[in-house]
Amino acid sequence: MIKRLLALDGVQVICLFRDDGALVEGYGVLDESGMVRLAHFAHEYKRMVQANADQLSMFTQMRGWTPPRGWIVRGAGASVCSVGNLVCLVENREASLNEIMNELREAASY
């Protein structure tokens, strides 16, 4: 099901990971070990973003930040985008982040 996200411009890899960070399935240009590493990173980064969003809510007493739905880390040439337990590796030059985040949001809700 998630494989169809590879059809989006710029998406190089799409992975689904479990709540413990283990790779469930992945598609794209990375080999198996690369996808395992991407899933592990996304899992840990998700927990860190959740923890920092919790603190932002705690300090500002503002709702609206938590629970975070997703995150994007943007590099010079590539980005990593994640919503829920889905993560994808994206090439910036070709990608529309809006389209990718919308598709990720939809796929993560299945």
Binding site: Q55, M58, F59, T60
Partner: peptide
């Protein structure tokens, strides 16, 4: 940077 954010928030609250 993270600790600076925490210190800022902690001292405000």
């Amino acid at each position: 940077a993270i600790a600076t954010m925490q210190a800022r928030g902690w001292e405000k609250v």
